[in-house]
Computed example of a mutant assay.
Amino acid sequence: MNVLALYDIHGNVDALEAVLAAAPTPDLVLVGGDALPGPFARATLDRLAELPTRWIRGNGERETAEALDGPEPAADDLAAVTAKRNAGELGAALVRPLGELPLTTEIDGVLYCHATPRDDAEILTRISPEERYAEALSGVTASIVVAGHTHQQHDRTVGGVRFLNAGSVGLPYEGDGAARWLWVADGVPELRATPYDAAATGERMKAIWPDVMSIDAALVAPVPALEITKLFEQRARPAT
């Protein structure tokens, strides 16, 4: 089976369209979590609904679903603010099922998760120590694990398990704005990138979306990838 794995779209429908135009025609589109929150979430969900998809849950879907019944967030908590905004815009009928998606799925021997197989928000980066990888992957029987969450592609093998981060379609922290994705042909993964006018898209997103810092860092004035990697590594926490 040919699988197009799309992670961390975050409502960037322009990037999604660029990837779909560049990618071969898949048998299945694996939506790896964090399709939302984002500025053009409804358009993103509508576009994905036209495709043969299988979804897993990211922390974005979980947090947006939790925001349906949650209190108004503090103004400086942008993750909560954006989740609450999409929850209100999209409504419970669309959002609640997204929060109930499975944490993992397996296709052709490849195990797909959002962050790690045990947690949708655990951080593993390009520079995380092997010990943390080994702990996060403990009990995994698949030889290949695909994740996202950090918005950076990487490919590590620890203890016989190959761990690939598919990168982010919509907010890639790679220093160049290009959308990242993964093509998996009969269980064999290949990391790919698609350039598009990310700066123009970023400006369009900033006009309606409060998380300006993330959009600038990913799309408009991309921050060097290693700076982001080090920042995420400082924030890494064990699963709860």
Rank of each mutant, 00 (worst) to 15 (best):
H149P: 11
H149W: 11
T150H: 06
Q152W: 03
Q153S: 07
Q153P: 08
Q153G: 07
H154L: 10
D155R: 04
D155G: 08
R156I: 02
T157H: 09
V161P: 00
N165E: 10
A166Q: 03
A166I: 00
S168T: 07
S168W: 03
V169W: 05
G175E: 11
G175P: 07
G175L: 10
D176A: 11
G177A: 11
A178E: 06
A179N: 07
A179Y: 00
R180G: 13
W181T: 03
W183Y: 11
V184H: 10
A185K: 11
G187H: 05
G187W: 02
V188E: 09
P189I: 00
P189Y: 03
E190Y: 02
E190G: 09
E190R: 14
L191D: 12
L191C: 10
A193I: 08
T194M: 13
P195T: 04
P195E: 09
Y196W: 13
Y196G: 02
D197H: 10
A198N: 01
A198K: 01
A200Y: 11
T201H: 04
T201V: 09
T201S: 15
G202P: 13
E203S: 12
I208Q: 12
I208P: 04
I208W: 00
W209A: 02
W209G: 00
P210M: 06
P210R: 03
P210G: 06
M213N: 13
M213G: 13
I215E: 12
L219D: 04
V220F: 04
P222C: 05
V223M: 12
V223D: 03
V223F: 00
A225T: 09
L226M: 15
L226V: 14
L226E: 15
E227N: 12
I228M: 14
I228P: 00
T229W: 05
T229L: 01
K230A: 14
K230W: 11
L231I: 08
E233F: 04
